[in-house]
Structures are given as C-alpha cells and as structure tokens.
Computed example of a mutant assay.
Amino acid sequence: MGLNDFILGLNNLETIVRAPGSFKFTPHTVAAHSYRVSSIAQVLGDIEEHHGVKINWKSLYEKALNHDYTERFIGDIKTPVKYANKELRGMLQTVEEKMTEEFISQEIPKEFQEIYRRRLFEGKDDTVEGEILSIADKVDLLYESFEEIVKNNPETVYREMFLEAIQTIQKYKHRPSVIYFFEEIFPELLDKSFYGKDDFIEQVNQYL
C-alpha cells in the first residue's frame, strides 16, 4: 500500500469530460477544471487578503486542488441530474463518500490516511477557504460556459449554467472578492461581441 494509486488517479481525471451529454466546441476535463479552480481561488485569496482577510493558504490550496478528485470514482454527473431532488443528491453523496473512504482505507498508508480524509472529503464549508472554493468553482463554470455561448453553441444548457453560476456566486456577496469580481472582472468578461448579446445581457442583469 503506497500513494501510487492516488497519483495514478490523476490520469483518470484527465479522461473525465465535464458537462457530459452536451455538445461543446471546447471539451474540458476534470483535471483541467481542478487546475483552473486552484488558480482562480488563488486570485480570490489575493483579493481577500488585500481587504484585510486572513487566509489559510495551505487549506485553500488543498481544498481547491482536491475538490473534484473523487469524481474519479463516479464521474462528472450533470448538474440537473445531481440536483433533481434532495434524496438523489444525498444518495450520490453517500456513494461517493463510501467509495472515498474505501479508497483511503485500502490505498493510502495509515500514517497519511487522516490527511487524505481531510483533503478528499467535502471542502465547501463555512470557513473563508471553503467559501472561496465555492466561489472559484462557479467562476470557472462561468468562464467555461461563456466560452460556448460566444461561439454560438446551440445547446441552451450553457446559458443556464452561466446564469446558475451567477446566482451561486451572488450568495457570497459578503465576500470582498465577490464584490471585486462583479465590479472589476465580470464587465471585462462580457465585453465581447456575439450573436444574441443584447438579449443575453438583459437576462444577466436580472441576476445582478
């Protein structure tokens, strides 16, 4: 028993495509998403620190880097399916947690098991770092879906994902990084010409 299987699992994440079942011009993998979320969390952490918030950087990086590692066990399930009802979401979470615990018990050396329980179980908690992870995860979804929107992807799911991401990020509007994001970063994202932009911006403004 060593850490070999944990490292091999990183290869699995490179083969799991996000938003399965929907046509996309630019496919994204869970591995790429984890890297982007970590980088976005770093940016948000910098903004928070600039506003006097103390950041536990080790915790933030651990949460961001590992937040979707367990998708190697169950894959990336489409958001509408995951959140179809609370019972289904609870069942999926139970399966994921059980498989994660079995993986840690069987593949991680005993001296490191508590470390990996901390890293691989739910990181989106009510700590500053947990909230930053939740925001960063949705910011990446925002950019990922917007990339398809500006390419005139006919799948309506990407507009739905974009608007849902805005709604979720807005739940953390008490965070300085969210205020900064919508004031300084978000307008630049939208500053592109694409078909149907006026109607889309009108929809977006309803969520801001």
Rank of each mutant, 00 (worst) to 15 (best):
A165W: 03
G90P: 03
I7P: 06
V204Y: 01
F162K: 01
L92K: 00
Q167V: 09
D191K: 07
F146M: 04
S38E: 03
I55A: 05
F73C: 12
T94S: 13
Q206L: 14
T70V: 15
K110L: 14
S105L: 09
E202V: 05
E147L: 12
P109A: 05
K78F: 09
A41G: 04
Q93G: 11
R18I: 10
E202L: 10
V150G: 01
K54V: 15
E164R: 14
K58E: 14
F121C: 06
I40K: 03
E122M: 11
N56C: 06
G90L: 06
L44R: 11
N56S: 13
R18V: 10
A41N: 00
P187D: 05
L13S: 05
I135N: 00
K63N: 07
K58T: 13
G196K: 01
I40G: 01
P27K: 00
E101K: 09
D198S: 13
V150Q: 04
E87F: 07
D140M: 05
G196E: 00
P176R: 02
P80T: 09
P176C: 07
E96I: 04
G2F: 01
F112D: 13
R36T: 05
E14T: 15
F112G: 10
E164L: 12
I115D: 13
H50I: 09
V150S: 01
F23W: 08
T156W: 05
E71M: 15
K110Y: 12
L3I: 05
G196H: 02
E49F: 10
E107M: 11
I55M: 12
V17R: 08
E129I: 03
E184Y: 09
T127Y: 03
V95S: 08
F6K: 12
I201V: 10
E164C: 02
R118G: 15
K82F: 04
Q93T: 05
P187Q: 08
V139M: 10
L13G: 01
Y83W: 13
Q206E: 13
A19I: 08
D126W: 02
Q167I: 08
F112R: 11
N11L: 14
L92D: 01
R89D: 07
G196N: 02
M99S: 13
N56E: 12
G52A: 04
N152T: 09
P80D: 12
S34M: 11
K98L: 13
D5M: 11
N56Y: 09
T168K: 14
A136R: 01
H33F: 06
Y143C: 03
E144S: 12
I166N: 04
G52Q: 06
V157A: 13
L44C: 14
E102N: 13
E107T: 06
E131L: 04
L133K: 01
P27T: 00
V17P: 03
K54A: 15
V178E: 09
E114K: 06
K86R: 15
V53K: 13
A84N: 10
I7M: 14
I47Q: 07
L208F: 08
I169T: 01
M91E: 15
N66C: 15
E147D: 15
T127Q: 02
V17C: 04
T26D: 12
L92C: 00
V17K: 08
I16A: 03
P109E: 09
V178T: 07
I55R: 06
A136T: 05
S177F: 04
L141M: 11
K151R: 12
I55L: 06
L10S: 07
